Simulated scan of single mutants.
Amino acid sequence: MSPGDGASGGGEGEYGGVGQTRTRLPDRATDVYGGARRGRSSSRSLTTVVGVVVLLIAAIAFANRGGDSSADGTPDNKPNAAPTAATGTRPVRTTPGTIPSGYPHNEQGAQSAAANYAVALGSTGMFDTGQRHAIVSAVYAPAVAVARQSGLDAAYSSEKFLSNIGLDRDGRAPSGETFVSRIIPVGTKTTAYSSGRATVELWYTSLFGLSGSSSTNPVSESWYTTTYQLTWIDNDWKVTDFTQKDGPVPVGRDQRASTADDMTKAVEEYGGFTYAR
């Protein structure tokens, strides 16, 4: 099963015009370094160099400043963030081994919830009955959790479905193979928001398949956007519904696929993340 979401806020263009410089191309294509313009005075050149150095130092200082912090460690004055930029808001509270919960009651909290819920809904845990029930209970609003769990149980217990992806009736991979089902959020966007409801789009890529020398369903990459309907209930964001569509899909690079052993090792050694804006 594949989840998805997106992000709101101003685009990266919000920072346009701040500290911008204009580069003039050389008049002659044969002189890529602009050698024909050496007639400028040395003092003019020195002033330009000093100016660039000062701007560079100021930029580095700004990047490392981190902003003034309040008593709880949250910056007092935060700039408007681009859709995929960190905001500086304190991350969601979480306990190791559990699905993050306790999201802020704002757009950022809704986006973080959608991203983390998508990761849980797209994990291998959905193929285990006990884990699936725990995920559904943590992700969905109580009013829809029971019906959603019933539908998911029927889907994930279908022997035809499991057989098509190479798993046995209990959702386990064949001996010597590793089942991979992982979602990696790329960006989020809030398309509607009120104090009690939010609509969030998640754009993400997913890895799915069986890693092993004899696998007939090797791990492949896909791209989706899922729109989540969230409601604020019991002091947290919960999913009430979602829709999914393909893409946007980037152009694939000409890279050699890794061996089954390398893929299995990567999946076993590289853990996932808690996604917070």
Score class of each variant (00 low, 15 high):
residue 259 T to A: 02
residue 71 A to K: 13
residue 213 S to V: 05
residue 110 A to I: 10
residue 160 K to P: 00
residue 264 T to H: 07
residue 66 G to S: 13
residue 259 T to P: 00
residue 66 G to W: 03
residue 268 E to V: 09
residue 77 N to T: 09
residue 202 L to E: 12
residue 185 P to W: 07
residue 224 Y to I: 01
residue 42 S to D: 07
residue 262 D to N: 10
residue 191 T to Y: 06
residue 6 G to C: 09
residue 245 K to N: 08
residue 203 W to N: 11
residue 234 D to E: 12
residue 205 T to H: 11
residue 38 R to P: 00
residue 252 G to R: 13
residue 131 Q to C: 01
residue 19 G to K: 08
residue 52 V to L: 15
residue 87 T to L: 01
residue 165 I to M: 12
residue 270 Y to S: 14
residue 137 S to G: 03
residue 36 A to S: 14
residue 256 R to T: 13
residue 66 G to P: 03
residue 115 A to E: 08
residue 76 D to F: 10
residue 48 T to L: 13
residue 26 P to C: 08
residue 143 A to N: 09
residue 2 S to F: 10
residue 40 R to I: 12
residue 12 E to T: 11
residue 80 N to E: 10
residue 265 K to G: 05
residue 258 S to I: 02
residue 157 S to I: 02
residue 140 Y to N: 02
residue 236 D to T: 11
residue 254 D to T: 08
residue 126 M to V: 04
residue 18 V to G: 11
residue 191 T to V: 15
residue 241 D to K: 13
residue 262 D to I: 06
residue 226 T to F: 01
residue 270 Y to A: 14
residue 12 E to H: 09
residue 158 S to K: 02
residue 86 A to Q: 11
residue 76 D to G: 06
residue 24 R to D: 04
residue 46 L to D: 10
residue 48 T to A: 15
residue 109 G to Q: 07
residue 105 H to W: 05
residue 75 P to D: 04
residue 276 A to G: 10
residue 270 Y to K: 15
residue 114 A to H: 03
residue 132 R to Y: 00
residue 172 R to L: 04
residue 128 D to W: 00
residue 225 T to K: 14
residue 238 K to H: 10
residue 50 V to I: 10
residue 54 V to G: 06
residue 164 N to M: 06
residue 123 S to E: 02
residue 97 G to K: 07
residue 215 S to P: 04
residue 175 S to G: 01
residue 167 L to D: 04
residue 45 S to G: 08
residue 56 L to P: 00
residue 53 V to F: 05
residue 104 P to L: 03
residue 131 Q to Y: 00
residue 30 T to F: 12
residue 179 F to V: 05
residue 25 L to D: 09
residue 63 A to I: 03
residue 209 G to W: 02
residue 81 A to V: 03
residue 168 D to T: 05
residue 99 I to E: 02
residue 195 S to E: 11
residue 68 D to V: 10
residue 9 G to Q: 09
residue 158 S to D: 07
residue 171 G to A: 03
residue 218 P to M: 05
residue 251 V to Q: 15
residue 118 A to Y: 06
residue 240 T to L: 01
residue 130 G to I: 02
residue 13 G to F: 08
residue 99 I to D: 05
residue 19 G to H: 06
residue 257 A to P: 07
residue 160 K to T: 04
residue 189 K to F: 08
residue 89 T to R: 10
residue 123 S to Q: 06
residue 226 T to L: 08
residue 38 R to K: 14
residue 206 S to G: 12
residue 211 S to W: 00
residue 58 A to K: 08
residue 242 F to R: 14
residue 273 F to M: 13
residue 194 S to Q: 09
residue 129 T to R: 04
residue 20 Q to R: 14
residue 107 E to V: 11
residue 116 N to F: 02
residue 64 N to Q: 13
residue 202 L to P: 01
residue 143 A to R: 05
residue 103 Y to R: 05
residue 15 Y to G: 12
residue 217 N to F: 07
residue 249 V to W: 08
residue 134 A to Q: 11
residue 179 F to Q: 07
residue 185 P to L: 04
residue 63 A to T: 06
residue 39 G to K: 15
residue 150 S to V: 04
residue 41 S to G: 13
residue 65 R to V: 00
residue 261 D to H: 11
residue 229 Q to S: 14
residue 156 Y to C: 02
residue 34 G to C: 06
residue 250 P to V: 00
residue 182 R to W: 05
